[in-house]
Design a protein around this nucleic acid. Structure first.
Length: 657
DNA sequence: TGGCCGTGTCATCTC
DNA sequence: TGGAGATGACACGGC
């Protein structure tokens, strides 16, 4: 029973859509007890959930029907979703048909590229039946004219898609691609080369077959003579209620033109078009004259903009309101069947979801990327945020570093950045991370790449042997090799080193500097040192730390200077840019002022006063009111009072008292 | 030989 | 209150 009901409803849906295509409106809601009510919504017009415009107010009373009195936004939105599911259940969506609709839609546009003779036989007839969009269509064509070979290439790609889809027709072939039309100029031989000749096309509707047999262009099917009453109602509606929509749509026709032109210029790819928000749908209102009243949802995305183009031709209004199908041609030619009609709605719904899926796919990528990034060392990621090597240095120092707690992060890391400039503590900090064993090597191994200063500290070899009781972690590192001992002996020792040696202090300067305060205090207390030795140890430690601090301070200073220089350059560039913009604005303002002045003169020259004399700019001026009205006003010259009169007045005033 | 630069060191301040 | 860091100022050596 469920299947029977399903088939019944499906057939009813198709029949309803077919009727709606020919202008007969059927309220399916009353038959389908609400479950298939979305069909009515689809028939009625665009979903306000998509358009986000107040046009649903008009839609509610459109054609005398009260569509959905409550919760229009959500209802339409979910209705579209339900319809999508239903159509999916009905069968596979026919995207090729929809694609052909797009291509057919391009027929009048490409007619500009065609020979006049082609227009007479193919797509030109489509244009012949158009009345509403003549001006807009011309604008589109004018926009298309400058299009170069890229557009042709796009059309060739489009043509390829047609062939691949194996669903094509004579109008599509001739209209979609210019090269194909050229081939038709040469003769009908080109058609033989078509991989999908017309006779081999499989069409899903009898009407389509009729169209194929009938050389008459698709638009003629829904010509003005056979236009259903609904189309007339629409025309009447559009012509009468348009002014009411004016405040709702402040955009101008030029905006629509630009949109349409852009949409046409990038028309070929269906995916692109769908992603772009169904831009080509804006173009479609051309086919409104065809009379098919299928409530395509084409204008959903662009309803706001299309409605704004209210001026003369009002094709945008046609499209926007309704719903008047962009694909009237395709509807008339191919999508007249229920499948096609559903496909018109379905395809958008499907592609909406595809777009959503695409976006969701992006979201789904992130975890993958994150997952792939999991294998990366977190420190590397931290480096990306680190503007300097300071934090890196801290992380690389490792727990075995004796100076981790003692030496500040900035100071120790700075020495690493400097390539081991002259900081012993820096070397002491960096050594463990580099696998260098002992602090005694700190001054020789790495530092001297760039700078080797005499003031650097080093501990003599005998310090190593003479400090067996020192429990610092650094001492546990690998001992110095004999070569390193020799080099340490050979190199010139600093003053503190010499003093330490002279006073038989059993610790190296790096050890003294890098060890924590607690250990240093324990060292002073537990080693039974003399006061001179303690003072020297404190001085060594103080000077060593101050050295690192000075290095850090200098580096920060350089960084600050560099940053300020960059800031200065950036601000100078910004200043130059602003100056250029100012000049351009001044030029534009001057040109506009001159143009306004010229226009004022022209207007005044055409006007006459009461005496029949032409108005001169010296006496009259044009004022533009807030309402946009242009008013001619006489120039009021200020009364010039001479100095003598003012003086006389003063005298009079003085005499009066 | 004087200037520049890098570095170490001191004095001072702040935390 | 002492330690540590920051910083200006100075000295020194190398180029």
């Amino acid at each position: 029973m469920q299947n029977v009901k399903k088939y019944f409803t499906e057939g009813l849906i198709q029949f309803t859509i077919l009727l709606s295509l020919i202008g007969v409106r059927v309220d399916v809601d009353s038959y389908l007890s609400g479950y298939f009510s979305p069909l009515l919504e689809i028939n009625v017009g665009p979903s306000s959930a998509y358009i986000q415009t107040p046009f649903h107010n008009l839609r509610d009373t459109w054609d005398g029907y009260s569509v959905h009195p409550k919760c229009l936004e959500l209802d339409y939105f979910f209705a579209s979703r339900r319809l999508l599911d239903e159509v999916r259940a009905l069968g596979s969506p026919r995207f090729p048909t929809q694609l052909n609709a797009w291509l057919v839609h391009q027929v009048p546009d490409s007619s500009e590229f065609q020979e006049p003779s082609n227009n007479t036989s193919n797509g030109a007839d489509i244009n012949s039946g158009l009345t509403l969009e003549s001006a807009l269509d011309n604008a589109n064509h004018s926009d298309l004219l400058p299009e170069d070979e890229s557009c042709l290439d796009r059309r060739e790609e489009c043509h390829t898609e047609i062939q691949e889809q194996c669903v094509s027709g004579p109008y599509i072939v001739t209209g979609a691609c210019e090269d194909k039309t050229d081939g038709k100029d040469d003769g009908s031989d080109e058609e033989a080369e078509e991989p999908a000749p017309v006779t081999q096309l499989v069409l899903s509707s009898t009407l389509e077959e009729h169209l194929l047999d009938d050389p008459q262009p698709p638009s003629s099917l829904s010509g003005s003579e056979d236009a259903p009453p609904t189309t007339l109602d629409w025309s009447h509606f559009l012509s009468t209620d348009f002014d009411d929509l004016d405040p709702l749509v402040p955009q101008r026709l030029s905006d629509l033109d630009s949109d349409i032109s852009s949409a046409i210029s990038q028309n070929v790819s269906l995916r692109d078009a769908m992603v772009r928000g169904a831009g080509p749908y804006d173009v479609v209102p051309h086919r409104d004259e065809s009379g098919s009243v299928t409530q395509q949802r084409g204008p959903y995305f662009r309803l706001e903009s299309t409605n704004s183009s209210h001026s003369d031709s009002s094709p945008g209004v046609t499209a926007g309101l309704a719903t008047l199908p962009f694909s009237s041609v395709c509807n008339a030619t191919r999508n007249v069947t229920s499948d096609s009609a559903l496909g018109g709605c379905l395809d958008e719904a499907v592609f909406d979801q595809i777009n959503l899926l695409g976006l969701e796919g992006l979201d789904s990528i992130d975890p993958q990327l994150l997952g792939s990034l999991e294998g990366i060392d977190p420190r590397v990621l931290e480096d990306l945020d680190s503007d300097s090597g300071l934090s890196l240095e801290n992380s690389s120092r490792g727990p075995t570093s004796p100076g981790t707690s003692e030496v500040s992060s900035s100071s120790s890391s700075f020495c690493e950045d400097e390539g081991g400039a002259t900081g012993y503590s820096s070397e002491a900090d960096s050594l463990p991370s580099k696998g260098i064993a002992d602090y005694d090597t700190w001054s020789q191994v790495d530092l001297s790449d760039n700078v080797w200063h005499d003031h650097s500290y080093s501990s003599p070899p005998y310090f190593q042997s003479s400090a067996p009781t020192f429990s610092h972690k650094a001492i546990k590192e690998e001992p110095l090799s004999e070569e390193e001992y020799d080099r340490d002996d050979e190199r010139e020792l600093s003053r503190d080193e010499l003093r330490a040696r002279a006073m038989c202090i059993p610790f190296s300067a790096p050890q003294i500097v890098s060890m924590p305060v607690e250990e240093f205090l324990e060292l002073l207390e537990g080693q039974a040192l003399s006061s001179a030795q303690i003072t020297l140890l404190r001085d060594i430690r103080r000077r060593g730390k101050n050295k690192l601090a000075a290095q850090n301070c200098r580096k920060r200073k350089l960084d600050a200077i560099t940053g300020l220089q960059e800031e200065v350059e950036r601000l100078q560039a910004q200043r130059d840019t602003l100056l250029r913009e100012k000049q351009h604005t001044a030029k534009a303002l001057g040109a506009t002022g001159q143009r306004i002045e010229q226009l004022s003169r022209d207007v005044l020259a055409r006007l006459r006063d009461d005496l029949g004399q032409p108005l001169t700019p010296d006496r009259y001026t044009l004022q533009c009111g807030a309402s946009g009205r242009l008013v001619v006003q006489p120039i009021r010259r200020p009364v010039v009072t001479t100095t003598t009169s003012s003086k006389s007045d003063k005298r009079k005033k003085e005499k009066k008292p």
